[in-house]
C-alpha cells in the first residue's frame, strides 16, 4: 500500500515538474494548460492582473476585469475559469484599446479565474485570482426566461463614452441577450459569439470572442488610449443563431 502511494506521489511530482506549478494549487492545471495551449510555452506573470471580488454572492453576475501591463504588447487574451463546465469565458484582441477589459461571468463553483496573454514572442503569460461563490451559475436558466420582453429587445445596445474626466476614453456597453449556456434543462445554448468595436476608419479597436459563461445582458468596459478620440464608434457582432448586434456609439 505504502509503496504504491510513494510510486503515485513520484509520478505526480514528475508530472508537475513538466509544467510550472500552479500557484492556485489546482490539480487540473496541467490538463487545462494542455487543452488550451497545447505545447506552446506558458508562464505565470504578475503583469497580467485579473480582478474580481474574493466572494461573489451572485454566481450569475460575477464582475471581473483583466488589466495587462502594456509592455507585454498582447496580441490575444484568453479568459477562462478552470472549474466551469464550459472553461473558456471570452477572448479579446485589444488592437486599438488599452490592454484592459471588464465584463461579468457565470461561475459554476468556487475556483480560479485566469487570463492568458499571448505576447509578441509567442509565450502565453497567465494571471489569475480566486473567486469563492455559492455556485450553480452555469446550469441555471437566464432570468429573462421568466420575462416575455426579451425576444423583442434581443441585442439591444445601451452604451456611453466618457470623453473627459478621470476615465476619458472609456466606453461602456450593455447588450440585452439571455446568454443561455445550453446546460439548463430544456434550453439550448444561445449566446453572443463575436463583437467588434471599430473606429470610423473601419479599423477594429477591440475584437471579442464571447462564450457561454459570459453573463446574461452582458456589460463590457473598454478603454481607448489617452489622446485618441474617434468621432464615433461602431459596435457590431452576432450571436450563435445569426442575430446581429449593430450600434453607433457617438
Amino acid at each position: 500500500m505504502i509503496r504504491l502511494l510513494l510510486f503515485l506521489l513520484a509520478l505526480l511530482s514528475v508530472r508537475a515538474a513538466a509544467s510550472q506549478d500552479d500557484p492556485m494549487g489546482t490539480a487540473t492545471w496541467p490538463a487545462r494548460q494542455a487543452e488550451l495551449f497545447g505545447d506552446a510555452p506558458v508562464v505565470f506573470d504578475p503583469r497580467v492582473r485579473v480582478m474580481a471580488p474574493p466572494v461573489a454572492e451572485d454566481p450569475l453576475q460575477v464582475p471581473a476585469a483583466v488589466d495587462i501591463d502594456a509592455s507585454l504588447a498582447p496580441r490575444r487574451v484568453v479568459v477562462f475559469a478552470d472549474y466551469n463546465p464550459i472553461v473558456k469565458v471570452l477572448a479579446f484582441e485589444p488592437h486599438g484599446t488599452r490592454p484592459y477589459l471588464a465584463f461579468r461571468l457565470k461561475m459554476q463553483q468556487s475556483g480560479p479565474l485566469r487570463a492568458a496573454v499571448l505576447d509578441a514572442t509567442g509565450v502565453w503569460r497567465v494571471g489569475h485570482t480566486w473567486i469563492s461563490t455559492t455556485g450553480g451559475g452555469c446550469t441555471l436558466p437566464a432570468l429573462a426566461r421568466g420575462d416575455a420582453e426579451w425576444e423583442r429587445r434581443l441585442n439591444e445596445v445601451w452604451a456611453r463614452r466618457w470623453r473627459d474626466g478621470p476615465h476619458a476614453g472609456r466606453v461602456r456597453f450593455r447588450i440585452l441577450h439571455p446568454m443561455d449556456t445550453g446546460l439548463a434543462p430544456g434550453i439550448p445554448a444561445f449566446f453572443l459569439q463575436s463583437l467588434t468595436l471599430t473606429a470610423p476608419s473601419n479599423r477594429p479597436l477591440m475584437r471579442l470572442d464571447v462564450y457561454e459563461p459570459v453573463s446574461e445582458n452582458p456589460v463590457f468596459t473598454v478603454d481607448l488610449p489617452p489622446g485618441t478620440s474617434p468621432a464615433s464608434l461602431r459596435l457590431t457582432g452576432r450571436d450563435n443563431n445569426g442575430n446581429l448586434v449593430e450600434a453607433d456609439i457617438p
Binding site: A65, A102, W162, R172
Partner: peptide
C-alpha cells in the same frame, strides 16, 4: 456618472 466599472467600485 464617472464611468467606473463594477470592479473599480469594488476596489
Amino acid at each position: 456618472a464617472a464611468g467606473l466599472d463594477l470592479t473599480d467600485v469594488l476596489a
